[in-house]
Simulated assay, not measured.
Amino acid sequence: MAADERPMPAEPAGARMTAAEECTGRVVLVGGGPGDPGLMTVAGLDAVRAADVVVTDRLGPVSILGDLDPGIEVIDVGKVPFGPATPQEEINGILVDHARRGRTVVRLKGGDSFLFGRGGEEYLACTAAGVPVTVIPGVTSAFSVPALAGIPATHRGLSQGVSVISGHVPPGSPASTLDYRALARSGTTLVLLMAVTTLAAITAELLAEGMPGDTPAVMIENGSTAAERVLRGTLATIARDAAEAGIAPPAITVIGAVAALSEQLSAYT
Score class of each variant (00 low, 15 high):
10 A>G: 05
17 M>V: 06
19 A>M: 10
24 T>C: 03
27 V>S: 00
31 G>I: 00
36 D>P: 02
41 T>P: 08
42 V>H: 14
42 V>I: 14
46 D>Y: 05
52 D>S: 07
53 V>Y: 01
57 D>C: 07
63 S>R: 15
74 V>F: 02
74 V>G: 03
81 P>T: 12
85 A>T: 15
93 G>L: 03
93 G>Q: 08
96 V>D: 05
96 V>Y: 02
104 T>R: 02
104 T>N: 00
121 E>V: 08
121 E>M: 05
123 Y>R: 01
126 C>Q: 06
127 T>A: 07
127 T>E: 10
127 T>H: 03
129 A>R: 00
133 V>R: 02
138 G>Q: 02
149 A>R: 07
151 I>Q: 10
152 P>C: 02
161 G>Q: 06
162 V>T: 09
169 V>A: 12
175 A>K: 15
177 T>D: 13
178 L>N: 10
179 D>E: 12
180 Y>C: 11
185 R>H: 13
189 T>S: 12
190 L>P: 00
192 L>K: 12
192 L>S: 09
192 L>G: 08
198 T>Q: 12
199 L>C: 06
201 A>H: 07
207 L>C: 02
208 A>S: 09
211 M>I: 01
213 G>E: 06
213 G>T: 03
217 A>L: 11
227 A>M: 09
228 E>C: 06
228 E>H: 08
230 V>M: 10
230 V>G: 07
233 G>M: 14
240 R>H: 15
242 A>T: 13
243 A>F: 10
247 I>T: 15
247 I>W: 15
247 I>S: 15
251 A>P: 08
256 G>Q: 13
256 G>Y: 06
256 G>W: 05
258 V>D: 08
258 V>P: 07
260 A>D: 14
263 E>V: 13
263 E>I: 08
268 Y>G: 06
